[in-house]
């Protein structure tokens, strides 16, 4: 029996899957302490849905990165190849603390990127993913599985020029696991960009928060699906999500769809969603202090995205993101 299609409301996943995925023989580059083990040419994870079938199909370099138990060393940086997607499996062993950075400035036609992160008990991971792909389309899947009392702080900066879909999943499997997923997305031109960000509370007393912010200009279309799922038995758990889209042009289209599935009583859950235009009152206030309209707009937009990107502390990366925002807006005004 073929694997099922994943649930991607309002996103034409089938259409993207019809494209032939780019060959991806070059593995990601890994910069890390010697204590971290890196293996290439390993077997791909077992696909469980049609998207994963596509991601493992054809030629795809597979890299496994293992961060040993109780690691407290320097950040582990994964850099995608110039012309290839790929598959990465990151294993963080018990009690380790690590900052994980993943950067993709990859070009090509139809990119496939699949990253699986397994976080063992009591480990803490600060995960930053920076997607700046310039391919025509990109299909991205990232899944994090958390064991007991593991913590994940995850920020995704979605600044690609590609159309496509990104599926993010955090699975809170062990008791007391905690995850925050912040997503900041900029879409312009004729881009169609879809995010399906899922947070599943499986273990007891697990806490999962999703916070998605997107800014769109031109004729771009951005879809934020947030899926919060509390499984039966996950007593004392909390699942919250916020999905907000800011539209800067009359032709931009935004969708924010929160979905909550709750199969347990003793839990807290909530969601908020909005699709808005730039607030004229805010612009007026800023401009009444002498700021020119473009500066005022930039401040409002940066401020809006800040909620998704606040955890990014690297000044160089932040400057790059701000520059991309400014350039995108300048082009949109032209």
């Amino acid at each position: 029996m073929p694997n099922p299609m994943p649930n991607t409301p309002k996103i034409a996943l089938r259409r993207y899957l019809a494209n032939a995925k780019d060959v991806a023989r070059t593995p990601v580059t890994v910069t890390a302490d010697p204590a971290v083990t890196v293996s290439t040419n390993v077997a791909a994870p077992q696909p469980t849905d049609a998207l994963e079938d596509w991601l493992v199909g054809g030629d795809s370099a597979v890299t496994t990165v293992t961060i040993p138990a109780h690691y407290t060393g320097q950040a582990v940086v994964l850099t995608g190849a110039a012309y290839a997607g790929g598959i990465v499996h990151v294993i963080v062993e018990a009690g380790a603390t690590v900052a994980l950075e993943e950067r993709w400035r990859t070009s090509g036609e139809h990119l496939g990127i699949w990253v699986v992160l397994d976080v063992a008990a009591d480990a803490t991971v600060n995960w930053l993913t920076y997607d700046a792909m310039t391919s025509t389309t990109a299909l991205v899947k990232r899944t994090a599985n958390l064991a007991a009392h593991a913590t994940l702080n995850w920020t995704t900066a979605g600044f690609t020029q590609a159309s496509g879909a990104t599926l993010i999943a955090a699975n809170l499997i062990g008791t007391g696991a905690k995850a925050t997923v912040n997503v900041g997305v900029l879409a312009a031109g004729k881009q169609h960009v879809g995010y399906v960000t899922a947070m599943t509370n499986d273990g007891r007393q697990t806490v999962g928060h999703i916070n998605q912010r997107g800014v769109i200009t031109g004729h771009a279309h951005l879809i934020f699906n947030g899926i919060g799922h509390i499984i039966h038995g996950a007593r004392g758990s909390d699942n919250q999500q916020e999905n907000r889209v800011l539209m800067l042009s009359p032709h931009a289209r935004g969708d924010a769809n929160p979905i909550l599935l709750i199969d347990e009583n003793d839990v807290t859950a909530g969601h908020a969603a909005s699709v808005t235009r730039v607030d004229e009152r805010q612009l007026y206030y800023l401009m009444s202090r002498g700021l020119r309209e473009d500066t005022a707009k930039r401040l409002v937009i940066r401020g809006f995205l800040e909620a998704g990107l606040a955890e990014i502390t690297d000044p160089a990366l932040k400057a790059e993101l701000f520059q991309t925002i400014d350039e995108t807006l300048v082009n949109a005004d032209a």
Binding site: D279, Q282, Y284, Y285, L286, L291, T295, G303, F304, A307
Partner: peptide
């Protein structure tokens, strides 16, 4: 006065 999230007071006054 309007409220603007994500823009700090200091950053705004300096821009002004």
């Amino acid at each position: 006065p309007a409220e603007i999230a994500g823009v700090t007071n200091a950053e705004f006054i300096r821009a002004a």
